[in-house]
Amino acid sequence: MLSHVDENGQAHMVDVSVKDITLREAHAEGFISMSRLAFEQVIQNENKKGDVLGVARIAGIQGAKKCADLIPLCHPLALTKVAVDFEIDKAKTQIKITSYCKLAGKTGVEMEALTAVSVAALTLFDMCKAADPTMQIHGIQVTQKSGGKHGDWQRD
């Protein structure tokens, strides 16, 4: 039986009250590809809207913190660490967005890590769309998680 569906087939929030508190961590990544012009504006900090990467980092952190407000059946979590970072790929005019979320709790933080990457990517798109409305956001995925009943996992 699916954990988010009750015996009548209705969606519901899973009761995690009896689960053990464990250290939970998750990493996620995603990419945004853009034109050379938009890319150069970002890396040279010449975008008219300001510090694109700085704003996207803060937006990603805020996104992780607001995950339960956005995803209907997610539990509100007391995150103890959220990090959002960027890797610049000049050859592909692409920015890799990575996130890391951590807490001691009863449920995992994969959704928060994914939300951090997604919101950071959307913020990059918003801030750069005047230079390139054809940007592409892609490859958003969990890359690693630890803690909980299912233990540690890492994408190959």
Rank of each mutant, 00 (worst) to 15 (best):
L37P: 06
H4D: 06
L2Q: 09
Q44S: 13
L53R: 01
D85H: 07
H4E: 08
C67D: 13
G54A: 11
K129L: 02
N8S: 13
Q10G: 04
F39P: 00
L73A: 08
P72T: 14
Q94N: 12
R155Y: 07
G108E: 08
L79D: 13
K90V: 13
A68S: 15
I95T: 02
A113R: 03
Q144V: 03
I88Y: 02
L77C: 11
V117K: 02
R24I: 07
E112M: 05
E46K: 14
Q141R: 14
Q41H: 14
S33W: 00
A83M: 10
A26D: 08
G147Q: 04
G105Q: 00
K102S: 05
C128I: 06
A68N: 12
L23F: 00
Q10L: 10
S35I: 14
I88H: 05
R57T: 12
V117H: 07
H4N: 09
G139M: 04
K149I: 07
A121E: 10
T22F: 00
G54T: 15
F86Q: 11
E7P: 03
D89S: 12
V117S: 08
Q154L: 04
A64K: 02
T134A: 11
L114V: 14
K96Q: 09
T107D: 08
H4A: 05
I71G: 05
H27M: 11
E40V: 15
R57L: 12
Q94G: 02
A83C: 09
D132W: 06
P72W: 14
D6N: 15
Q136E: 10
V16F: 00
I61P: 04
L53I: 02
S118P: 04
Q41C: 12
A121H: 11
L37C: 07
A56P: 05
D126Q: 07
E87M: 09
G108D: 06
A56S: 14
I71F: 01
H150P: 03
Q44R: 15
I21V: 15
I137Y: 07
N47D: 13
F125R: 13
V119Y: 08
I140H: 05
L23S: 00
I97Q: 01
N8Y: 13
I137R: 02
K66P: 02
F86W: 09
L79S: 13
K90I: 14
T22H: 00
K102N: 05
S99Q: 03
E25T: 15
M13A: 01
D51K: 01
I97L: 01
E29P: 01
L2H: 10
L23Q: 00
I61R: 03
I43T: 10
N47C: 15
Q44M: 15
P76S: 11
D85A: 14
H12R: 04
V14G: 01
I21W: 00
L70A: 05
E46G: 12
V16P: 00
A28W: 08
H27V: 09
V142P: 05
V16A: 00
C74I: 09
A64T: 08
L79Y: 11
Q154H: 08
S17F: 10
N8D: 11
A59V: 02
I137G: 03
Q62N: 15
M111G: 04
K48Y: 13
